[in-house]
Amino acid sequence: MLTTDGPEAQDQLFESPHTPDVPKNLARATLRLQFSPTYVIVGVYRLFTDPLLYAPAWDKCKHGTRRGAIVGALWAAFTFNIQRKFIELFLANSPRVTGLSNNTVFGFKVPFSLPTYAAVLFLGSQITYILGFFLYRNIRIARERAWAQTMTSRGKGPDFWQPYVEEWETPPVVAGDTKLEKFVKKWLGEKVGLFAVKRILLLPFNFYPFVGMVISAWFKALGTAHNLHRQYFESKKMTEKEIAVFMEERKWEYRIFGFTAALLEGLPIIGLVFTISNRVGAAMWAHDLEKRQHFVASKMNTNKRVE
């Protein structure tokens, strides 16, 4: 019987009693499914090597990227020294508030100038927002289209997606939303509320060099993974309960995939590129998951005919 007690539980999925043998056409997909972060790498590779993917994405974003890069470069040239001086005068001299000083982070010595690091970090975030402002509409379209373009490059159409099939003999019981989540969704709206709460909770970690990015990505992991597979769930017309059970059965795969994707998307400037490549990787993961669904469905149908 399958459980959800840890990463090893997902390995048992491929040894399920109703799917004892994996066919050759699923062998490579099975290996990839056992380590979901590989799809993030696959997404980057395909985006930069497949003309069906990078050409339309660049055509949609090139004008906004050029305008944003010019404005961002001018902003950096005129404000870097000012921002660095501001950090030296106010932040670095207030360690009780931020934990920063000229050569320490929360009491630990670092091999670089903290004001310079903080200025570069803040400036990188600002340039990212500037680029995002000029790219807002077009990069959103590029992300949405990346899914369909990936499927087209794989030669798959709408008929590839079949109704959801439960793969576990005993599906896990999924708990509902917590009281805090229900309150946030009710009064602020699901997307806006949760986004605001995460921003507030994660704000203190922004002052930790490098470590802050890792902590932030871990907290965003499941939400990022769910969002990246939104089109997969829609294509299969899955209910909220089916989605919750499906993700719970693969919670470690989704968490690790989402962590890796969120970590790359959180990088200043180049993270915008990863917001597209991660959609490609998520589509490739969905492709293998769907092949697995087809295999399970065919085995179930065969067993029913035998009975």
Rank of each mutant, 00 (worst) to 15 (best):
F274N: 03
P172V: 00
H226I: 06
L202G: 02
P56D: 15
A142C: 09
Y45L: 12
G132E: 08
I130M: 05
I139Y: 05
V120E: 01
Q231L: 12
R255Y: 08
P23L: 08
D59I: 14
G281D: 02
P95N: 10
H287A: 13
G271I: 06
V22M: 10
E144V: 14
T116Q: 14
A29N: 06
R96P: 02
R145T: 15
F90T: 07
N138T: 14
E234W: 03
I70M: 14
G193Y: 04
L135E: 07
A196M: 14
L2M: 13
T30W: 02
C61A: 12
L180V: 11
F210S: 07
K185D: 11
T224Q: 05
A225H: 03
A57C: 09
S153Q: 03
D11M: 12
V214R: 03
T98H: 15
T3W: 06
E169N: 14
Q149R: 04
S94C: 14
I139E: 06
P20G: 01
P111V: 00
H229G: 08
R46H: 04
E8T: 08
F233W: 07
V105I: 14
R67I: 11
A221Y: 07
L131E: 03
K85V: 12
Y164S: 12
D288R: 06
E181N: 07
L222Y: 15
L203N: 04
F210I: 09
F195S: 07
E181R: 14
T302E: 15
S125T: 15
H229W: 10
G155D: 04
S94R: 09
E242L: 01
A76Q: 04
M300W: 08
T239D: 07
N25R: 13
R84F: 04
T98V: 14
A261M: 02
V42N: 11
T49D: 04
R32Y: 07
G258A: 13
R143K: 07
M213F: 10
V40W: 00
K182W: 09
P95F: 06
F219I: 00
E190N: 08
L263M: 15
T4L: 10
A29V: 11
S36P: 09
L13S: 06
I243K: 10
K62S: 12
L264T: 10
F183M: 12
R46T: 00
R154N: 15
S153V: 04
V71H: 00
E190Y: 11
Y208H: 08
T152A: 11
I215W: 05
T38Q: 04
N138L: 00
L2P: 09
H226N: 13
E240D: 15
T38E: 03
F233H: 03
G99K: 09
L2N: 08
A146H: 02
V97K: 13
R255D: 08
G99T: 10
V280L: 00
A9Y: 02
K237G: 15
K191T: 10
R292K: 06
G64L: 03
V44L: 11
P51T: 01
G212E: 01
N93D: 14
V192M: 12
